Every structure is written in C-alpha cells, then in structure tokens.
Computed example of a mutant assay.
Amino acid sequence: MTSGRGFRHRSSEPELMDDFTQGGDKLQEALRHLRRLNRILRANGPALYGVKRLWNRSGRPDRLTILDVGSGSGDINRRILKWADKQGVKMRVILADVTEEARAEAERLFRNDSRVLFVKQDLFDLVSEQADIVTASQFAHHFSKEHMPSIVEQMLKVSRMGVVINDIHRHWIPWVAVWFVTRCISGNRYIRHDGPLSVAKGFRGSDFRSLARRIESSGMTYSWRPLFRYAVIVPKQREAETNENGI
C-alpha cells in the first residue's frame, strides 16, 4: 500500500492503459468494469458541473457540442445528455480516443443514441474550434506536469467556449477506497492496477495553481467536488474580452 508520504507528489508510474501495444479483450472488459466503478464513485459529477458553468457563462445556448478527449467508452457523458434533455438543449457529443477497444465499447454503449459520435483521433489531431466545450475526464492525470500546459492549450484551441477537466484528488482516502472497490467489483488486471494508481497520479490544489500560471489563459478556476474529485474550468477568452482588458 502506498504510504501517506507518497501522496505529496504525483506518481510517475505508467498505467497499463498507457501501453497501446497491449489491449484486446481484457482492455475492452476493463472499460466495461470502469463504467461500474465510475457509477459507484460518482465520476460524472465534476464534468456536468463544469459544462453547466460554461453553458451559463455563454448565455445558455439551445445547441451545444461536447468533445470528450480520452473518452474511453464515453459513459461519463450519459448524465450530461440527460441534463441536456431536461434543459431542452440540442446536444451533440463527440467521443475521441485512440484505441479500437474504446471505439467498440462506445459504439455499443451509444448504439441507440444518434447524438453521440466516436472518432479515433489523438487530441493533437483535432480541428480548431471543433466543439463548444472540450472535456477530459480522468485523462489529464496520464500526463506529466511538464506536458499539462500544452494539453490544456490544445484543448482550448479545439473549443469555442472553454475546457472542463474532471480528475482525481490525490489523497490516501480515495486511494484506499479505490483499492478496495476495484477488488470487490473486478478481477481485471487493468482495473486493479490502474485504479489505485490513478489516485496516486492525481492532483491537489497546488498542481492546478501551478498550471494556471503556465497556460496562456486567464480565468481558470478549480473546485473540489464529491467524491474526492476536482472540476477545472478554463473559459476561452473572447477577443472582445481581450481588447477590453487591454491585453
């Protein structure tokens, strides 16, 4: 078990899912089990929180396109789609991931929902202003501190309204919880290895304060959300706002 001292700094150990030379049935099974873990740990809450904030900031448009990078099966977006239905928002969701396993699970999960499209693309291959809001759920912790600014700036480039990052709070309590839950719900090696490691690779407020100083955007905010998660919101600065501020 990782010691409390080990949570002072982010782990640099790679997750099994970061090895794209592996995969197949076991990875596809892991994506299915991850949906179960996400439901138990309420992983979709911060993403919806951030989307609602940017939607309100942009005048509550009646049409909205979400692009979810590193989406996996895209299950996080089901709650966002239900929210859009209640608000009368015509929603379109683009799921972007680089694995065939993610494509297979996403297309199976959303086979009856024409609002959801999967594209097999890397973040840096996406087109500028391709979506209103670009989200990343449990994606950012796969990258080092050095790479985070370029990741966020590329997400901003792809968005029209801004970026929402939903990721894990690095702390011993969620580590223990995830270690226990993964062993209760799954025998899959990806889930058992990567679940607790994701917490050790997660974030604290100091990480986001450091990131805010290094990206070319004003107005980035972060907030702690249940259960031991962060919602990071990076609004896209409009040209009029830039001119008004004299920057």
Rank of each mutant, 00 (worst) to 15 (best):
F208A: 05
G88A: 10
K236W: 01
L123D: 02
R35T: 00
L211S: 07
Y222F: 15
E244P: 02
N245K: 15
P14S: 05
S186V: 07
V163M: 07
N38E: 12
V164W: 04
I173K: 05
W83L: 09
G162N: 03
L48H: 08
G205I: 04
R213K: 15
Q138T: 14
F203R: 09
L227E: 03
M1D: 14
R39E: 11
R42S: 09
R214T: 04
R225F: 04
K26S: 15
D167F: 09
V127T: 13
D18V: 01
R92C: 10
S159T: 11
G74K: 03
V89E: 15
L95E: 00
M155A: 08
Y222S: 02
W224Y: 12
L156N: 13
S198M: 01
Y190E: 06
V152F: 00
P46A: 09
E15F: 00
E105Q: 04
P174K: 02
F7W: 04
E216K: 14
A104K: 09
Q138F: 13
H141R: 07
R229P: 08
R57Y: 11
E153W: 00
V164G: 06
R8L: 06
G202P: 00
R170Q: 09
R238W: 06
K145E: 10
G24A: 09
I66Y: 06
A104Q: 09
E105G: 03
T242A: 15
I173L: 12
T242G: 11
N38P: 01
V98Q: 01
D132Y: 07
N243C: 08
V158H: 00
L123A: 00
R213F: 14
G6Q: 06
R183S: 07
M17H: 08
G205W: 05
E29V: 04
F208K: 02
V232M: 04
Q87F: 00
S159Q: 03
V164C: 06
